[in-house]
């Protein structure tokens, strides 16, 4: 893996951190000197302390776990359904004409609009939460997979025909690797949306999870807890994204653009 020299890369990353650091330190000083009250926006030190307390008591771990399990389950269901539906719709024209218009119409519905219906149908326990996340994950994956299969280079398929690959071998040796990059992009988008929707899902009633920390912080006027939950969300989302990339990087090593775009 060739890249710019380490020093220059480090310098660039440092430059990116400069702005948030200056703002944080500035706010810290402003609150410490009494120039600002810090009641609605607590200084970094208090947010850090709250985060530390949550972590020390084991609460943070419980909340993060609850959220990750919901996102994980929803992501698995949504991604599996998206891949399956995308593959079927792209390869069977009759199915495409039959269900693609309906799916595109459903896609146009803002997914949060399902919340009241899901609550009516499934109550407020885990099912509607996971389902809502799955719905959010499904569409980007579906669109990516069906689009990728439809745009597989016919010329490469012909190479497979020349070597008389069976339908199964053609799918495994040509279609699958050809659609992999776009599918992974869809999965990443889906995972991002999964984190978006888990907040909505946990806002609709939960006794644990990072979203619960948000609601709780709002109801009991604890902005430091809200900030702590937001930071935990950011970290969890970023780590999940990095894990997905790390897991799939070996599959896209051949791609010129993979390293830059991922």
């Amino acid at each position: 893996m060739r890249g710019p020299p380490l020093l220059r890369r480090g310098a660039r990353a440092g430059l990116g951190l400069l702005l948030p650091l200056v703002l944080a330190v500035g706010w810290e000083i402003a609150v410490a000197t009494g120039a600002a009250s810090g009641r609605l926006l607590p200084p970094p030190s208090r947010i850090g302390a709250t985060l530390w307390d949550l972590a020390a008591s084991g609460d943070l771990r419980m909340h993060v776990e609850a959220t990750l399990i919901r996102v994980g389950l929803g992501f698995l269901c949504g991604a599996a359904a998206g891949i399956l539906a995308g593959a079927l719709v792209a390869t069977i024209p009759a199915l495409r004409w039959l269900i693609d218009p309906s799916l595109q119409a459903l896609r146009a519905v803002p997914s949060l609009a399902w919340v009241p219906l899901f609550i009516l149908w499934f109550g407020i326990l885990e099912t509607p939460k996971v389902l809502l996340i799955a719905v959010g994950v499904f569409f980007p994956v579906y669109v990516a997979v069906s689009g990728a299969i439809a745009s597989v280079d016919r010329k490469l398929v012909e190479v497979g025909r020349i070597f008389r690959l069976s339908r199964l071998a053609l799918a495994r040796r040509i279609l699958l690797p050809a659609v992999l990059p776009a599918t992974l992009v869809g999965l990443r988008t889906g995972l991002g949306l999964g984190f978006l929707f888990v907040v909505a899902a946990e806002l609709m009633g939960a006794s644990e999870g990072l979203g619960y920390l948000l609601v709780d912080g709002q109801q009991f006027s604890k902005p430091d807890q809200i900030m702590a939950a937001i930071i935990a969300f950011a970290l969890a989302g970023k780590l999940a994204d990095m894990a997905l990339i790390a897991l799939t990087l070996p599959l896209t090593r051949w791609q010129d653009t993979a390293r830059e775009s991922l």
Binding site: L156, I162, R164
Partner: peptide
């Protein structure tokens, strides 16, 4: 009538599979 094991083809473009070395 269909591609045959005894007939090989080289196309105008290389048509290499980008994911294979």
């Amino acid at each position: 009538r269909e591609p045959h094991p005894r007939v090989g083809v080289v196309f105008q473009e290389p048509r290499l599979l980008p994911w294979l070395d």
